[in-house]
Structure formats: C-alpha cells, structure tokens
Design a protein around this nucleic acid. Structure first.
Lengths: 130, 130, 130, 130
DNA sequence: GTGGTCTAGACCACC
DNA sequence: GTGGTCTAGACCACG
C-alpha cells in the first residue's frame, strides 16, 4: 500500500488515508484479508505522527473497512456490500483518458479538480419535481 | 455569484468559497471589475458566519484574486496572467461527458472523486516496501 | 520574546506584533529556527485574544517570516534574503543618540514620531495648490 | 498644506491627517489664523471621501487644534500652550541627519520606523524606583 | 500541548 | 452600506 498525502489541501490527513484505502479496495488493489502496513511503518513513511495514522485506522475499523487484530495487525474486511471492482477498472480508463485530455489542454491539477467539483456538485435543475 | 458549500467534506468552508471564486474566474463567469456580493450577504445566503466569509475574502485578496475596497466592496482583480477561459469552456465538456459516463456505470460522487484524485496525484516510481 | 503593545496607537494589535517580530529578526534577537512562544501564551501575557495573536502568526507565515508547524509551534523561517543584522546594530546606536538628543530638547514621543514620519515620507516635488 | 497619506499603514486615514496638521503647527508651517484647505478640496486631492476628511476636521476642532467657522472655513487656533517652534526646527536637523545616515546604511523606511519605535517604546529599566 | 476553523456579536473606519 | 479589528469561547486535527 502506497499513500500519497497532500498536507496543504485542507483535507485532514487521516481522511486522506481513509479515502485512499477505500479507493484501493474499490479498485481491487486491496482484497479482503490483505494486511495493511503497521501504523508505525505508515507514520514513518509518510512523515506523520503515529497518532494520526492510528486515528485513520480506528475510523476505518469503525466504518467496517478493515479489521484490527490485536498483536497481528490490520486487515481488509470482507465486504458484504459487493464492491464492483470490474466497473471501477473500466471507470479508471474513462478517467485516465479525460485527465490526459484536460492536461493536454493546459489545465493544471487545481483547475481540473475545480472543474470536476463543479460538475459533481451541480444542482439538478428540477430536483423538486420528482 | 452562487456558492455551493459542503460542510461535511472536511475541506474548510473558507477554502471552498475560494476555490469556487477561482473557478468562476477561470470559467469566465466572473470577469475583472465584477463586484462580489458583500461579506454579510454571502454569510446570510450560505448560512455561515460573516467572519468565515471575511477570511475567505481576505485570503483571496492576498492571492491577488480580488481587490477589497474599504467601504465599497470586493471586486475581481485584473488577472495579469491571462486566464484561458476558452480552454476551460472546452474542458468543461470533456468533464461533463466523463462524469456522465461514470455515473452511468454506477459510481457515486465519492467513488468518482477518489478515482480522479488517484489519477491526479502523481505516483512516485518507487514503491514503499514493507 | 517580549512584546510591547500600545492599544491606543490606532495601529492594529496584530500588526504591532508582526512589526516587532520583524524587528527582532532584523536585530538578531530572533534567529532562523528559533521557536516563538505559543499563540495562547502570547495572548495571555499580552492580555489579548488568542485569535488576534493567531491572525498575526498567520500573516507572518504568509509573509515568509515564520513557519507554522501544526501541533508543534511557530518557528523563525530561514531568510533567503540575508538580513544585515550588523548594519542594524550600528543603526541602533545612531537612533539611540538621536532620540536622546530629541528628548533632551523637550520633545515628547508624539512629536518625535511626527518628525521622523515627516522625514521618512517622501515629499512630492510639486505642491498641491489651492 | 500638503498631506501625505499612506492607506496601507494600518493607521486610520483621519488620524494621519490630524498628525500632519499637528506637526505643521509644531514646526511653524501653520500659524494661528492660517486657513486650512476646504474639506472637499482635501478629499479630492487626497482621493478620499469627504466624510473621512470631515471627521479629521471635527476631531481637530475637538482637540482645540483648529476652529471651524461656518461658511468661511477652518483656521488654526491660537495655541495657549506655547508651541516651541524653535526647538522643533533644531530637532528637525537632528532627525534629518539621523535618517540620512540610516538610509546610507541601507535601511529602508520600514526598518527605520521599527528601530525608532523600538527605541521610543523602550521600557525604562527601573521605572518603579522613582 | 500545538495551531486551525468556526461561531457569535461588538465596535470602528470608510464610502 | 462596505470591509476590518477585536473579543469570547467551542471544537477539531496534529504531535
């Protein structure tokens, strides 16, 4: 498991960790039973405080993403709610193509993020009508 | 100017405001000289504290996005670095198509965001090994 | 670090803090890596609100004067532009002599300040005519 | 009367006006009975709002610096407390020499101001002893 | 313990 | 009316 943390994004570090584990599970990179690196290891690699990593692990257990086994480590939980890894794999291709196109147009990471954000947050025009 | 704030995203409210103004400028919705709504107005509309909005405005001035004129209001600054509104407009289409496709595949907002994130965040070539 | 604040000068408290840190750096009293007292500590000592001190710290980080390390404190930044501490030290003697002379002439603080101000503020060559 | 206003100093504009009139009186540039330019004139010249200038004038009258005669204008008041113009004139020379020296040492306006401030604000070492 | 965000509400300077 | 400063105090993220 490789984490990529951006300490300047405003998003709490522990949340960034969680989102990345969640994504790794969705994309199939992490499968039920897989072991996560230890808290101290992650803390050291990511140059962050073990407490912060511990908080992320705690929250992930709480969310049912992982199981913490005392003395042996953290393991990916069985997902009752079937994760559609296949769909995600295809989706990734879509995203990769789009991102590449956007970068070729000269957009930087921030601009792309803002565009996506704007698109995802778009209020449905007639949400009240049902 | 219409803001869409998500108080549960973990991203500070004042940063969300800034990103949206930045995007509005990039997309041409706000042009140099345009006046932003007053701090108190935004605070009221968005149901947030005026100080929080004020902080966003202050930071935007700091970043050169806007100019604050004491007693008269906040105005979009002249962008020395020309903003390529055209490119953004075309880019928006790309994003819209991609997002629609992803939603049709059954991905929810969180999953899409994680995918994009994963794509945008450069991967180090060497992986951390346990 | 000892601050001396004048709440009646019309100059915002947070600006007074900043100017004093800046001066302490110039004069060599604070050197790169030195830790500043915590926000709450300063607030207590100076009998002012922690938010006000926090604002000063934030602005100083913005200006590159200090670095704020989340959870550990505020530290004097490395000054790329070398500060000529030597020159300031000699300059201080010049100022001390002048101030002493002026006080001996019967000028109070306000008068001295106005004179210096008048001297420092460049005069336009052309006068406004009525 | 020529005013020099710095809108970015943090010192309220109306206070800057007052200090400069006060200094002009001290230095003999303005003498009892002299007429000040009208509020609108100053506002126009200084590119500020008449209300701001009016406030300065009001405060100066309140302080006994000037007399406002309805319909005819603002005039320097008679100073009961004798102003030692002579002393100020000599003092100006002292200041000019010092400032020139400091500038030659490479100090900019800000640094000079901070040094003077630091000197003027210096707490007497044994102020309690009397 | 540190700094950071947010709220609530007062008062000031400026237009 | 505008933005700006300051206070008071709660809660969060990080070390």
């Amino acid at each position: 498991m490789l984490f990529r943390i951006n300490p300047h994004s405003g998003v709490p570090l522990y949340l960034q960790l969680i989102e990345q584990v969640r994504h790794a599970i969705e994309s199939g990179a992490l499968r039920p039973g897989d072991q996560l690196p230890g808290i101290r290891k992650v803390a050291e690699d990511m140059v962050m405080n073990p407490n912060t990593v511990a908080k992320a692990y705690r929250e992930m257990e709480h969310a049912g993403l992982i199981v913490l086994r005392h003395g042996s480590g953290a393991f990916i939980a069985d997902h009752h709610a079937a994760v559609q890894t296949r769909a995600i794999q295809k989706a990734r291709t879509v995203v990769q193509r789009a991102v590449t196109a956007l970068r070729d147009m000269g957009l930087d990471e921030g601009a792309i993020r803002r565009l996506v954000d704007s698109e995802l947050t778009e209020r449905p025009l007639e949400e009240t009508r049902k």
